Computed example of a mutant assay.
Amino acid sequence: MKAIWNNAVVAESNDTVVIENNHYFPADAIKREFFEDSIAGTTCPWKGRASYYSLRVNGELNKDAAWYYPDPKEAAQQIKGRVAFWKGVQIVP
């Protein structure tokens, strides 16, 4: 699977975990040069507290376009160390 935004592949892996129709990519599959830490955070009742990354590609910013669970709850341990995308990031085979 590939995560693409602004004509750049920002993550690529054959090992994604799909939860709630979101592909979670292994952290080592993301191309760090496109990622910036964000101060955003949300809480999911069964997954726990999510942290976010913004994407910067070709001079354009996609704020809070990726998220991850640094310390997921027990029910979501399969996404520990993984990153998912939204806000226009295309996920393609």
Rank of each mutant, 00 (worst) to 15 (best):
E74D: 13
Q78H: 13
P70F: 14
N58H: 11
Y69G: 03
A65G: 05
A50N: 05
A75L: 13
Y53C: 09
I39G: 13
D71S: 13
C44W: 10
Y53F: 13
W46Q: 03
S54E: 11
P72C: 00
Y53A: 11
G48Y: 13
A84W: 02
D71C: 06
W67L: 08
G48D: 12
W67Y: 07
N58K: 14
A50K: 05
E60H: 09
F85W: 01
K80C: 00
P70A: 11
A84P: 05
V83K: 08
K63R: 08
W46T: 08
V89W: 05
V89M: 08
N62L: 12
E60R: 11
Y52G: 10
R56E: 13
A50V: 01
P72D: 14
A50L: 05
L61Q: 14
C44N: 02
G41C: 12
Q77I: 08
K47M: 01
Y68R: 04
A76S: 01
P72Q: 08
T43I: 12
G59F: 03
F85G: 07
G88R: 08
I79A: 04
E74M: 06
W46I: 10
A40P: 00
D64E: 02
I39V: 15
C44P: 00
G88S: 07
F85E: 01
V89A: 12
A76N: 07
G81N: 07
Y53T: 00
A84T: 02
K73T: 02
Y68D: 02
L61K: 11
R49H: 14
L55G: 03
V89N: 09
S38Q: 04
K47S: 04
L61C: 09
V57W: 01
V89L: 10
G81K: 08
L61A: 04
Y53W: 13
E60T: 14
Y52T: 02
A84S: 05
N58E: 11
L55Y: 06
Y52Q: 09
T43Q: 12
A76V: 04
V57H: 05
Y69V: 04
W86I: 05
R56K: 15
S54T: 03
A50F: 03
K80Y: 07
R49I: 15
T42S: 11
K80E: 08
S54N: 06
G48T: 13
G48P: 05
L55E: 06
Q78T: 15
K87A: 02
Y69T: 01
K87D: 01
